[in-house]
Nucleic acid binder design. Sequence first.
DNA 1: ACCCATTTTTAGCCCAGGCTACATTTGGAG
DNA 2: CTCCAAATGTAGCCTGGGCTAAAAATGGGT
Lengths: 142, 142
Amino acid sequence: MGLPVNQPEHSRLHERIRADHATEVAEDYVEAIDDVQREKGICRAVDLARRFGVSHVTVSRTIGRLTRDGYVETEPYGPIRLTTKGKRVATQARNRHDIVYQFLLALGVGEQTAAIDSEGIEHHVSRETLRAMERFTRRDQG
Amino acid sequence: MGLPVNQPEHSRLHERIRADHATEVAEDYVEAIDDVQREKGICRAVDLARRFGVSHVTVSRTIGRLTRDGYVETEPYGPIRLTTKGKRVATQARNRHDIVYQFLLALGVGEQTAAIDSEGIEHHVSRETLRAMERFTRRDQG
DNA sequence: ACCCATTTTTAGCCCAGGCTACATTTGGAG
DNA sequence: CTCCAAATGTAGCCTGGGCTAAAAATGGGT
Ligand SMILES: [Mn+2]
Ligand SMILES: [Mn+2]
Ligand SMILES: [Mn+2]
Ligand SMILES: [Mn+2]
C-alpha cells in the first residue's frame, strides 16, 4: 500500500481530467436547455442542434443519456425539460461559467476570446481556483 | 450565406472545444514522452501507462494513432521516440502548461490544485489568454 | 379536414479511447 | 545457455459522441 504520496501523482491528475470530460457534455447541455427555456419558453432538440452545431440525431442520443442519468425528462415528440437535478446542475454550471468569463475579461482578454476560452476552461476549474478567480475579478473591478 | 456574424456564434465555440479535445491526448502524450526521455533516457509504453493511469493496451493503441499522425516513431518492441513534429508539439505543450501552472500559483492557488487544474485548463487557453496569463504572472511576482 | 413542412425517431455506420484475457517477444539473471 | 519475468502485441469487447439516410409523428395554415 504505502503511505499516501503528498505530491500529486500524475495518474491522479489524468483521472480527474477524464472525469471532468465525462461531465462536460452534461453541464453544457443542461446549461443550454435552461438558456433556451428562458429565451423561448420550451426547449426542443432542434434548438440544441443549432446551438452546438451538431446534427439533431446527435442531440437526440445525448438527450437519451441525460435522461438515463436523471438530468432531463421527455415524452416522445415532446419538449425537453430539466429535472430538479438538471436545474441544479444548470444553475451551478452557468454560475461557474460566468465567473470564468468575467475573470478572463478582468484579466484583459477580449470578449470573443473570453467567450471561447471560458467555454472550455470552465469544466476544469476547481472550487479553489474558482474562488481565486472571483477574488481577482472583484478586486480588479468590483 | 449571410454576412459573417460578429458576435461569437455559439456553435463556433463548441466546434473549438471539440477540436481542442481532439488534440488534447496528443499534447499530453508527447509532453509525457519527452518528460520520460529526460528522466530515464528512453520511453516505453509501460511508463506512459503508469503516468496516465491507463492499461498498457490503451497506451499501445494511442501510440498507434500518434504514429499514424506523425508525432512518434516506433519499431516492434522498441522504445517510443518523438518525431521532429512530436518534439515541437511537446515543447510548445510543456511551455504552455507551465505558463498556466505558474499563473495559477500567482493567482494564489495551492500547488496541488494548480497542478490538477492546469492539466485540464492548458488545452483550452488561446494565445491571447496565454499572453494575458504571462503578463499577470510577471507583474505579480516577476 | 387535409396536407405538408418541421421535428423526432430509428437504423446503421464511424472513430477515439477505455477495458480484460491471452499470446508473443525480449533481455537479463543465474 | 536456458529460463522466466517483464514488456509488448493481438483479439475482442464496451461507451461516448459524431454522422447520413430514411421513416414516422405532429401540428399549423389554408
Ligand atoms: Mn457552460
Ligand atoms: Mn463549456
Ligand atoms: Mn500538459
Ligand atoms: Mn493536459
